[in-house]
Simulated assay, not measured.
Amino acid sequence: MYRIIAALAFASVLSACDGATLTGDGGSGIGTGAQPLVPEPDPGTGGGGTDPDADPDPDNLYTSELDDAPEGLDVNDMTYVPAKDELVFNNLPFDGDKAVAGANVYGRDAGLSAILNPGGTGFDAYRNTAGPSGTSQYFAVFRRSPSGFSQVGAVGTDRYLSFGFGGAAAQRLEGNGALPADTDSYVFNGEYAAVRTVLVDGAPSAEIQYVSGLARIEVDVDDPDVSGAVEGVIVSREFFDANGVNIAALSGADFLSLATAEINFDTWTINSSEASAVRTDGEVTQTGTWSGLFAGPDGEEVVGIVVVEGQGPVGIDPATREFLTEDIRETGGFIATRP
Rank of each mutant, 00 (worst) to 15 (best):
G228Y: 01
D317T: 11
A103H: 12
A170E: 02
R172C: 01
G24Y: 02
I328R: 09
G244P: 03
R144V: 06
S150M: 09
L293R: 01
Y186L: 10
G49T: 05
E274Y: 09
D18T: 15
D220V: 09
G213E: 02
Q171M: 13
F89I: 02
A206R: 03
A203E: 08
N128Q: 08
R144P: 03
I305N: 00
S28F: 12
Y138M: 03
G120H: 07
G19L: 13
G24C: 05
G46M: 06
P118E: 07
F139C: 04
V235Q: 07
Y80L: 04
A319K: 14
G33A: 05
P146R: 06
A168T: 05
A193F: 05
A140R: 00
G282R: 08
T45S: 15
D254I: 07
G131V: 04
D97E: 14
I247L: 15
G120D: 10
S276C: 13
T32Y: 11
Y62F: 09
A203N: 09
L14A: 10
P56D: 06
P43Y: 04
C17G: 14
S150A: 14
A229T: 10
A295D: 05
G332S: 05
E301A: 08
D55R: 13
A7W: 00
D25E: 14
T260A: 07
G304D: 01
T287I: 14
D201C: 13
F265A: 08
V230W: 00
V100L: 13
V308T: 06
L92W: 01
T320L: 07
P339Y: 11
G27P: 02
F239C: 07
